[in-house]
Amino acid sequence: MARDTRSLRTSITAKALSLLPRHWKRLLWERLIRLTLAAAAVVSVLTTVGIVSVLLFEAVLFFQEVSILEFLTGTRWTPLFASQHFGILPLITATIITSAGAMLVALPLGLLSAIYLSEYAPDPVRRGLKPVLEVLAGIPTVVYGYFALLFVTPLLRQISPNVSVFNGLSASIVMGIMILPMVSSLSEDAMRAVPRSLREGAYALGSTKLEVSTRVVIPAALSGIAAAFILAISRAVGETMIVAIAAGQNPTFTLNPFVPIETMTAYIVQVSMGDTPTGTLEFKTIFAVGLTLFLLTLMMNLLSQYVVRRFREEYE
């Protein structure tokens, strides 16, 4: 470190001396660098602009031919058939089944794991366990799809013959496992941010660990936990491969988790894999569906950020 500083010092002084007569050149150089860096930062904004304008542009073309009302309230989705219907509700109910199912798995397991990690686990255990749990989040979703279709579904079919080869249930369970680390990790962060003094205050009144966790820590961390849940739902809604592989490609207007269904994301995959020519009305459906998906998840992400900011308890 000391050596670095010294060599740095000599190099900077040398540079400064050689640049002194041409001070303006250095300024210009700094300006140029600044502009280049700013341009890179603007790329992220352009990405958003790109997403919104692409989706809007094509969706507007789509809605010139299909009424928004039919799109939002119709219960039949058959753009790829001869008798075309463009009611997105079957795709929405499928998305609701799979995300709600996933949350039923991820929410209790994730929250309990978070409580264990933050309140019960000794430090070395926590440090070892966290990365292992996060492995679950790092596994590619196509792998989960494989697991859902070829392991979980046959298992479910052994338990109940009502379960089809493609079904929402199997996809939800596996998706729940996938987002569990997200719920537990973010909730744990929120719980660990609760000052120790609050826990001590509760212990000093004769609380058990259960009471400290559920009556002090969780309420104090509630905004962070709620934000984690919302983010997890958003993630489930946008998840693609598990549902495309295991839940099916049948846009059925149903809330039955045992039958084949098709989520918004799975539909986009179906069209992309098929031979639908770009530019046709059938193809434009993916922009309308994509826009719906984008708006839904955007709303949830914004809500989650709002919840954290608005309801954060300020300590000290």
Binding site: A41, V42, S44, V45, T47, T48, G50, I51, V54, L55, L231, S234, R235, V237, G238, E239, T240, T265, I268, V269, S272, I286, F287, G290, L293, F294, T297, L298, M300, N301, L302, Q305
Partner: peptide
């Protein structure tokens, strides 16, 4: 705005990037 935008981009479903 740039910061909020980056946070939100991280939450956009990956399939939407495919459309982009």
């Amino acid at each position: 705005i740039i910061q909020v935008n980056i946070t939100n981009l991280a939450g956009v479903p990956s399939i939407v990037y495919g459309i982009l």
